[in-house]
Amino acid sequence: MTEQERREIEELLPFLANGTLEGDEKTRVEDALQNDASLAGELAALIAMRDTMKAEEGTESPGEFGHARLMRALEKKTPVQTAPAAAAPQTSRPIFWQIAAGVLCAALLGQAVWNSGADEGDYILAGGGEAALTVTFNPDATEDQIRNLLLDAGVEIVGGPSALGLYELAPLEDVSLDEAASVLEDNSEILESIDRVEE
């Protein structure tokens, strides 16, 4: 193997490690590996490094809160646009659609209340008008934990966060407030506080 050929193989090695190499390039690298123990060792080191990076990557992302924000922004941009229902296939689990639809409805309702001159005190949240519960999440709770809890309890975020970190929740259509509250109250490691909204 010439120096240039070896350099080319070494350049492609990381992409064999991540499984994206194809065709002739993949064959060339695999052939080279069979005759060169140091290349094989380098590949093993790259794979170990990649596995470690993937295992350790625990970035918390905006998750469902970001999704609700995106849907609210879309609603403001395209207030009358509707999807062609017949053309839309089942693209996610039904519960997600319920949450997405709920957030959209809540955003519209919230906007209506806001525009009608509701009292804008510090405790008024930015979102919907059907909130039945207000909660604060434990700062250490992960987005996965929060999402799973909301799904388990059958509730959706309809407003917030307020300046105090309060979120408004509403039960989904087929979930009673008592059922939802009971599930939420059993998860004090995720929720710091939970209060019912007074009628």
Partner: peptide
């Protein structure tokens, strides 16, 4: 589908690539 105005499709894309 998102290009045709399907917000649910955008939601699915968001959940797939957001993180």
């Amino acid at each position: 589908l998102a290009g045709q105005g399907d917000k649910a499709a955008l939601s699915a894309l968001y959940r797939r690539y957001e993180r």
